[in-house]
Amino acid sequence: MTLWIILGIIVVVAGYAVVTYNNLVSTRQMSAEGWSGIDVQLKRRTDLIPNLLETVKGYMSHERETLEAVTNARAGATSAANGTPAERAAAEGQLSGALGRLIATAEAYPDLKANTTFLEFQAALQKVEDEIQLARRYYNGSVRNLNTAVESFPSNLIANAFKFEKAQYFELDSPADRAVPTVKF
């Protein structure tokens, strides 16, 4: 009888270990999927910027500093594409700030504000910004679930045994960078 009890306990513990391991793997995959979604949206935004700048250049030729800031921030975001979420967030925050300044400066040019190409790029940029926000929420939610599982007892025993690590949140550093560029029609 004691043998059956011991065998039963071993089966229950092994079953718990398997279920916990599979949960950790699933949560890690959701986190990777979320990061992929952010990456796709950030690439879409980065790809929109050269066309937006070309449209704006003709109207804002003496706003060279603003245009260069967007170009440099885009280059920084592109080079940070393979970095950690924290590095990527810093670069993307700078890009968001530069885009916000560009859109704000464009308000001073009535002809530019009426240009249909510029309006189309503004709408596309706003849509991408909304998609980035949704992707960031999904990613950060999956990271929260993974980090909770990695740190909580007793799942942390399985996580440590199989070298599961906490993931980084995708957060923007400053409150100004957190603001989505305002697009007015």
Rank of each mutant, 00 (worst) to 15 (best):
E131L: 09
G93P: 01
A86H: 02
A106T: 01
E131I: 12
L99P: 05
T117E: 08
Y109S: 09
P110W: 03
E92M: 06
A91F: 00
P110N: 06
F118D: 04
A81T: 11
V128E: 00
T105W: 08
D111H: 04
A108E: 14
D130L: 10
E107R: 04
L112A: 11
Q122S: 05
A106S: 15
E129V: 15
I103M: 15
A86V: 11
A90M: 05
Y109N: 13
N82A: 15
K127S: 14
A89V: 03
S96Q: 09
N115I: 04
L125E: 02
S79C: 03
N115L: 10
N82V: 14
A81E: 11
P110I: 03
T117F: 05
F121W: 12
R88N: 12
Q126I: 12
T84W: 06
E120G: 14
S79L: 00
T84I: 12
A124V: 11
P110K: 07
T116N: 15
A108H: 10
L99W: 00
L125M: 14
I103E: 04
A98Q: 06
N82K: 11
G83W: 01
Q94M: 10
A89Y: 00
L95C: 07
N82G: 15
A98K: 06
S79G: 01
T84N: 04
A89R: 01
K113E: 09
G83R: 01
P85N: 00
T116V: 14
Y109C: 11
G93Q: 01
A106P: 08
A124I: 08
A89G: 13
F121Y: 15
Y109M: 05
L95F: 03
K113R: 12
A80T: 09
N115Y: 13
F121T: 11
A77L: 03
T116H: 12
G93S: 10
A77E: 00
Q122M: 12
Q126L: 07
T78Y: 07
F118W: 12
K127V: 15
P110A: 02
K113C: 06
D111E: 14
E92P: 06
V128G: 00
E87T: 11
N82C: 03
G76P: 01
A104T: 15
I103T: 11
S79K: 04
D130E: 13
T105V: 09
T78E: 13
